[in-house]
């Protein structure tokens, strides 16, 4: 079976001419959310469904994914850990701080954390990074998928607390959670503007693409903290 490594730790398997996105299963034999397990050459892969994961969709939309085997990631809006489990596969020697606000979904997430050594669960509100500033170190990447009306603000304030100087911010912006009626294009433009100049921390947007057909009315975005060269 042909296997192509798209990015560090992210694979594209070719099964009967169907391309399947996958990561290497860190805990062989276990499927986290009912996804398919595929063995090849003694290596077990877990299928990664882009329709259930914004990051998966971003991979297929050809984003440059700033993740390495030893990255440290802050994941805001971890939910029950679908995407987190795949990042956990990618980060063989890294660490994920998974922040989730709802105790109900945290219950599922903790089951995952019990199995995997590289996930640190934090039950907290991403609006209040001060409430987990005593736990989280500086990270290489912040991934955010929170579906809140103030998504850009949450990204900015968390970056201020936790993002390394040259670290990346990956953001999935859901227009529906900002305004259900307004046109998504307009909202995306406004959110990007906010990130570029709306806060006391400024970002340089490196890449932005909409995530359809995998997720409707979502914008994927990769940014870095803007550093003024002259300063």
């Amino acid at each position: 079976m042909p296997v192509k490594e798209l990015h560090s730790g992210i694979y594209e398997l070719d099964i009967d001419d169907r391309k399947i996105l996958a990561t290497k299963n860190m805990i062989p034999g276990t499927s986290v959310y009912g996804e398919r397990l595929i063995s090849d050459d003694g290596i077990e892969y877990r299928q990664w469904d882009p329709c259930r994961s914004k990051l998966g969709a971003m991979v297929l939309r050809n984003f440059d994914i700033p993740l390495d085997a030893d990255s440290t990631v802050l994941y805001l809006g971890a939910a029950s850990g679908t995407t987190v489990s795949h990042i956990s596969d990618i980060l063989m020697d890294g660490l994920i701080y998974a922040v989730e606000f709802s105790p109900r979904t945290m219950r599922d997430l903790i089951q995952l954390c019990d199995q995997r050594p590289n996930i640190i669960p934090i039950l907290a509100d991403a609006n209040k990074p001060q409430s987990y500033a005593h736990i989280v170190e500086k990270v290489d990447m912040i991934f955010q998928d929170v579906a809140q009306p103030n998504q850009a603000e949450i990204a900015a304030i968390n970056s201020k607390y936790f993002l390394e100087e040259h670290g990346h911010l990956m953001l999935s912006i859901k227009s529906r959670s900002i305004d259900t009626v307004a046109s998504p294009k307009k909202i995306f433009k406004e959110e990007v503007r906010k990130l570029e100049s709306g806060f006391d921390i400024e970002f340089e947007v490196l890449e932005r693409k909409e995530l359809d057909p995998f997720h409707e009315d979502h914008l994927g975005l990769v940014a870095q903290i803007f550093v003024d060269e002259e300063d």
Partner: peptide
């Protein structure tokens, strides 16, 4: 977590 006012 409940009381922290930590600054960046």
């Amino acid at each position: 977590q409940e009381n922290s006012q930590a600054v960046p």
